[in-house]
Design a protein around this nucleic acid. Structure first.
Lengths: 157, 157
DNA sequence: ATTGATGCAAAAGATTTGCATTAGG
DNA sequence: CCTAATGCAAATCTTTTGCATCAAT
């Protein structure tokens, strides 16, 4: 992952190349995302930007634009607002461990064999289902360290 | 997958074993899920049960109970209501291809190598992150046959 | 009788939208 | 100027909740 300044420069270039402006609010949201190693929801971003004057609806509009341009990626979670993170263009490719008690999202990037299996599958889908894969998402749901100690038994919930 | 009648019998036994009743609404929702090879959202279930008198909030309450008991499984999707499907106790284990144009969800169960890789990962998470995996979810997002013809190029969106 | 399940209506939470205003080129 | 972006307020959509009623043992 690149330093924040460089990421912002890249994002600026990316937005302009697509014919959009990097306005104040867009810069602020991009900065919040670039400075956060994990994920933020719309409201957290709005809070972070407390001092600057920005409306919640603008945050959503910016995030939607960013998703459309693939600057960021939306993670929909059960019971709660969607989370956003910079896309793989700016972050390393990874997937998520989601704690079903506290909702915490842990990134992981241990793959090796897995990713090659995934791309084999993607070719299969194209043949068998005529389905063209643009992105894949792998999530593990469970109980994190804080919410439940590791034991030999599966969690009861 | 078993015939619907048998699935319902199993579900009845499962619910009673957990100390709950299989009431009318619960039976109707279970039947709707058992008769659907793919997924339904709460409103679709409500529609399906049009003749029988059941309130939308009851549908949600039943679905939440079913998820808690692991009779069914909730699939949260972007832009739209959550989808529900019977759990792997009653359906074969599978994952999803999600079309980002029309929202269609296609089941797939081609695994082989993949599943063993996934369980290796789950062991790793327990060691490295002290995270105990209860379930995993693998989704491929892309464009389905109806929404875009298969081509050699990646979809522009 | 007592506990749990349901219907109804209202509330809550997240996100989107219409419209007037402002800003950027 | 002209188009795009923003703030504000209201609307929308999904899901949850409080409460009175009903059902089941």
């Amino acid at each position: 992952m690149q330093p924040v300044e460089e990421m912002l420069k890249n994002i600026r270039g990316f937005i302009k190349a697509k014919g959009y402006f990097l306005t104040g609010p867009r810069y602020d949201v991009a900065k919040a995302l670039a400075e956060t190693p994990t994920h933020l929801d719309a409201d957290e971003i709005h809070q972070l930007l407390g001092k600057v004057r920005i409306d919640a609806s603008t945050v959503y509009r910016v995030l939607n634009l960013f998703c459309k341009l693939r600057i960021c990626r939306k993670i929909v979670v059960d019971n709660g607002p969607a989370q956003y993170e910079l896309s793989e263009r700016f972050m390393v490719h990874h997937h998520h461990l989601i704690c079903k008690h506290c909702g915490k999202v842990i990134n992981f990037d241990e793959f090796d064999l897995l990713e090659s299996e995934l791309s084999k599958l993607e070719k299969l889908f194209r043949r068998k289902y005529k389905f063209v894969v643009a992105d894949h998402k792998l999530e593990f749901e469970g109980v994190c360290m804080t919410c439940g100690p590791v034991s030999r038994n599966k969690p009861s919930l």
